[in-house]
Design a protein around this nucleic acid. Structure first.
Length: 796
RNA sequence: GCGCUCUUAGCUCAGCAGGAUAGAGCAACAGCCUUCUAAGCUGUGGGUCGGGCGUUCGAAUCGCCCAGAGCGCGCCA
């Protein structure tokens, strides 16, 4: 078993503490809050100062002096009120990295006392649509399931179906109304019931809705449902047979849903399975003398007498069982049959009181002697108004509706099947590809939203933001993996091999230190049952890697040793990131990671907005136009001295008109084009690529037009072309319309300045992917009105 | 009425077994493509951590009070 860095340091510290006769309880380090001062810090001296009645700095100095002898530390200092700042030597760090990179478990500890952990999450109801709450429960539960398994616990996950209550009676009653002749409803029939039902899960939800509506307005229907519920729970053969079908149809559908989310259960038990045990609970309550009759119901009183809690109701006045007793019975079963050491529930935090009651009652019944019960409550998924996400008409947001909503959002930024048809053998195939893509992006994005925030706090579902690929998102993490994969591919072809890790730069050091935190992170996630710890770490690790990646080349390092070392570090980073994504669980993104070429272009061309920034004069106030302008349309702008006056939403053709107001001496338009976005607006011709054209600048003799960066774009494209070995985009630059009176505006002179009024560039789609942003700066000096038309399209 | 949770940058959120200069992402602004995927990197601006009192050498973090928001409270699950 390899030791993690933190463990190694703690061990050294403990020895020192013991040697000095100090309580080793405080001999722990944590990652430094001040990375400028040290790698790790120990606050033990501050804590000890109180009990030892000594000056904390004195204790700290004593410890520091002792540690000085150890070669493992490169720097030890006592700062502030008594922090011990420790920096470790590069040798130790590289040793730890070596261990980690050769360990299958990436240096992560496995528990030496495996426990049986029962996880209760998902909790769908038969014949009811799943809603966003189920989604959170499932995603969070699945993540914890994977973490627990990874650290070596035995996990039994149970979805705990809602398959037993009054809703069942309501549905049976509703079906009875429309098919009274069905054999299920023959009270005397004992067996030989039909072995299938002509219903789909959609039918069932419709039936439930109808039943619900009926019961809401009609007391006799309600009464009828209650009677049927009682008979059904009591074992009425026909109702039971019908119910079996209902349950199966629902479970099949729910399984499909969960599979799509990559959520899996060991057991599909439900409330029904606890029914028999409920009677045992009643006996047990009697035996322990903790229950009493109150208002006709059998209850257990909870809380202190001066501070009572709402009681648990074991049995209703009509003799029916409540979900209190069902949950208590389920605990008993999990303890007796599954030998659970821990039972963890993942539900909406609004159920916190319910579980408090159930746990306390279970305690009183003597069921929790050898088991730890825990309820992890999560916050609600909220809409833009900060309140629980509802459908437009105020109903509960269904899971499928949410996914559809997300898909629609994703579709906005993904090309249509027609756009990519040429890359596939048939249109159907293209459509299929796009549909899958939209599915995956949408679901992955939803899951990411669920896991990136602290689970207890709920979050606002930002439909506009969630499909973005920038910043703290899943794709960011994945992108780091993609880059590493790319490096490794290249390394393999250029015969560069991994080698011993040596620390030569700050960036390497930072990355290594970050990697060394893995074990702590996973164990903290286990302890807190908080997947966002992993998600957060994955993000910062990817960030640290990006900095490392940008700071120095891996393939072209100063020496072969450094290259080999960096390669190993990169590979280790990738392995860690993959593990983290697995634990989150977000494998979907891997589809993105290793793809190159057109499919990548499509997959990644999401939300690349077109920015239009018009700047007035030099050093003046910047004016920002509406952020995203779709260029299948024309948007008209007028600039004044301070701001754009109008953004007229008259869009036609592929023109973008910029108009400066009268009386301006100088006007600048800086137009940033996001090329991939264009490509998805129908101007993406797979054969000819995309053309930009800047044309029709009025009164060319009267002002200067400088366009720069165009050539830079072009050059970059050439480079990409050679590397990708794909067909080159053509390029044509015309200088028509330039006249002798044109003068160069030095302010924006670049090395590739073109003076002209017409520029055509043709770019191919592969290149667009790699060069998604192009910028033109058009500087205009004039006295009258200016208008610049920019055409985007393939047909000029 | 009783109870639970929350309030940190313009927005969405981290940080909370007390610790040294409160962090990210988005948005804004300025740079960076002849170099391993620019979905990126570097930098700038932006906060009296809802308010008050207390405990402490030291409080976003612990306690009390107040304000605001949300949620839950015996026969629905």
């Amino acid at each position: 078993m390899t030791q993690t860095l933190e463990q190694k340091i703690n061990k050294k510290l403990q020895q020192t503490f013991e040697k000095l006769g100090l309580n080793p309880q405080y001999a722990t380090v944590k990652t430094s809050d001040r990375p400028d001062l040290s790698d790790f810090q120990c606050n033990g001296a501050l804590a000890l100062a109180k009990s030892e009645r000594k000056n904390p700095r004195e204790i700290a100095s004593q410890i520091a002096a002792e540690l000085e002898q150890d070669q493992a530390f490169s720097k030890i200092s006592v700062d502030g009120p008594g922090f011990i700042n420790l920096s470790i030597s590069d040798n130790l760090l590289s040793d730890v990295m070596e261990d980690m990179s050769q360990d299958e478990r990436l240096g992560c500890e496995k528990t030496d006392a495996p426990k049986t952990v029962v996880l209760d999450f998902g909790a769908p109801n038969v014949a009811k649509d799943m809603h966003v709450g189920h989604l959170r429960s499932a995603v969070i539960g699945e993540s914890i399931q994977r973490v627990e398994r990874f650290i070596g616990n035995k996990v039994i996950s149970d979805t705990h179906l809602g398959d037993w209550g009054t809703p069942m009676g309501m549905i049976i009653s509703e079906i009875m109304l429309s098919h009274p002749d069905w054999p299920f409803f023959d009270d005397d029939k004992k067996d030989g019931f039909p072995d299938s039902l002509p219903y789909t899960v959609e039918d069932l939800t419709e039936i439930y809705k109808a039943a619900n509506a009926r019961c809401k307005e009609d007391e006799s229907a309600r009464q009828q449902a209650r009677i049927i519920t009682a008979k059904f729970q009591d074992g009425h053969p026909g109702y039971r047979a019908l119910w079996q079908h209902l349950r199966r149809i629902s479970v099949d559908a729910v399984k499909k849903n969960f599979d799509a989310l990559d959520v899996h259960f060991d057991l599909w038990l439900g409330e029904s399975d606890a029914h028999e045990t409920c009677y045992k609970i009643l006996d047990l309550a009697q035996e322990k003398g903790v229950s009493e009759k109150d208002d006709g119901a059998l209850i257990i009183r909870l809380g202190e007498s001066n501070k009572p809690k709402p009681p648990v109701i074991l049995q209703k006045t009509d003799g029916g069982f409540t979900y209190h007793i069902t949950d208590i019975a389920t605990i008993k079963m999990r303890v007796d049959d599954l030998h659970a050491d821990e039972i963890i529930y993942f539900t909406d935090k609004r159920q916190a009181l319910h579980f408090e009651q159930v746990f306390e009652a279970a305690e009183k019944l003597g069921l929790v002697k050898n088991v730890k019960l825990q309820h992890i409550g999560f916050g609600t998924v909220n809409g833009p108004d900060g309140k629980p996400f509802k459908t437009r008409d105020g109903g509960v947001m269904k899971l499928e509706a949410l996914i559809d909503l997300s898909k629609d959002k994703v579709k906005e930024s993904v090309p249509t099947a027609e756009d990519i048809a040429k890359d596939f053998t048939s249109k159907e195939e293209a459509q299929h590809y796009i549909d899958n893509l939209v599915d995956e992006i949408a679901i992955a994005a939803i899951k990411f939203q669920d896991l990136k925030n602290n689970i207890a706090s709920g979050y606002i579902f930002e439909l506009d933001d969630f499909a973005k690929f920038d910043g703290k998102t899943g794709p960011y993490i994945q992108y780091a993996i993609a880059r590493i994969n790319s490096i490794m591919r290249k390394a393999a072809t250029s015969n560069i091999n991994e080698g011993k890790i040596v620390i030569t730069t700050k960036e390497e050091r930072d990355l290594a230190l970050k990697l060394a935190q893995l074990n702590t992170i996973i164990w903290r996630t286990h302890q807190d049952k908080e997947p966002s710890i992993i998600s957060d770490y994955a993000y910062t690790l990817a960030q640290t890697f990006s900095t490392f990646y940008n700071a120095a080349s891996i393939m072209n390092a100063e020496s072969a040793e450094v290259a080999s070392s960096r390669l190993r570090l990169a590979r280790l980073t990738r392995d860690v990131l993959k593990l983290l994504l697995y634990l989150l669980p977000r494998e979907q993104f891997f589809i993105l990671a290793d793809t190159v070429g057109l499919k990548s272009v499509i997959q990644t061309g999401i939300n690349r907005g077109i920015k239009i920034i018009a700047t007035e004069g030099v050093g003046s106030i910047s004016i920002t136009a509406p952020r995203v302008i779709k260029v299948n349309t024309s948007t008209k702008f007028q600039t004044s001295k301070r701001h754009i006056l109008n953004s007229v939403d008259q869009r036609q053709g592929a023109n973008l008109n910029l108009t400066a107001a009268k009386g301006l001496n100088k006007a600048w338009f800086q137009i940033k084009l996001s090329v991939t976005e264009l490509s998805f607006e129908g101007f993406f011709d797979l054969d000819t690529g995309l053309k930009f054209q800047i044309t029709n600048i009025f009164k060319p003799s009267r002002f200067t037009i400088v366009i720069r960066k165009v050539i830079i774009i072009y050059l970059s494209i050439i480079r990409r072309y050679h590397r990708l070995n794909r067909h080159i985009g053509q390029r044509r630059i015309d200088h028509t319309g330039t006249d002798a009176g044109t003068k160069l505006n030095t302010v924006c002179s670049g090395r590739n300045t073109i003076i002209g009024s017409d520029v055509n560039i043709l770019v191919s789609h592969e290149q667009l992917f790699h060069r998604p942003q192009a910028a033109f700066i058009i500087a205009v000096e004039q006295t009258g009105d200016i208008a610049v038309d920019i055409n985007f399209g393939t047909d000029f």
